[in-house]
Amino acid sequence: MARKFNIALSSRLSPFQKFYLLIIAGFILGPFIPLIIQSFAFRWAWPDLLPGTWWLEQRDRAMVPLAWDYVLSPYSRVWEATVNTVLIGSIVTVICLAICLPAARVLAREKFRGKSAFEFFLSLPLIVPEAAIGIALLMMFIRLGLAGSYVGIIIAHLIPTIPYMVRMLTAVYQGLGRDFEEQAMILGASRWQVLRLVTLPMLLPGVVAGALFTFLVSTNIFLLTFFLGQGQIVTLPTLLFSKIAGGTLDASAAGITLIVTLPGIILLIISERFIKEEAFGKGFGN
């Protein structure tokens, strides 16, 4: 009965309800519209609301839209930047998980002196401006020979991501009693088996959310990457910055921007699927 009622309710939205949904959609999708238009423009001069010349009208002069032609060519370094971004993001996520899982376990389960102070300090990297951290790190890293290296960038990316991850995982661990792990141990599971067969699967929704978030944060970090990459390591955000640094958003910059959003969108879709299936497989809650 209740189910039927809900479906009936959701399929018959009032104009008001539709209006608010549209507003939300506008704010979320709106920013993409000029980008998409731009990337298909041939010429779009200020102060026109829409491009003066579209690519379609000039098809004889360009096979693909100009912007995309450039973006997809090796000169744009888009491919290189994408690989770098995904690579750095993945490594950062894995290291972040490896550090934060045990740390979150301790924070969630143990009592120790100075715990609340520790929890407070966890948030500090989020409060201190990124630029300050970046400059300070750069000075150290130049000395250590880490500037302009993957290692340097990965270490830098861990700074803003660890606090988020630890917080997320601590909350998840708090919801997971010790019983399950102890039961697994009694049944003969080794530490590694307990982690692999019981702890991780039970923490999975939280771990996926945390990993996704870390990856997205990492792929969007500009300032730290820019400082520490020294121009030698290009990621999508730094590439984009170099394109728009002149103060104009030209067609190729718009194209790159769209590319920049791709890893995130793909990841969102995957995780959405994944989490849904996971929740479904578990039956009803618990």
Partner: peptide, 19 residues
């Protein structure tokens, strides 16, 4: 260690693995 004792324990709240 627990794993080597070959004991069985049924917990008060069963602790069945939900997944």
């Amino acid at each position: 260690p627990v794993q080597d004792r070959n004991v069985g324990m049924v917990f008060q709240r069963y602790a069945l693995f939900p997944h």
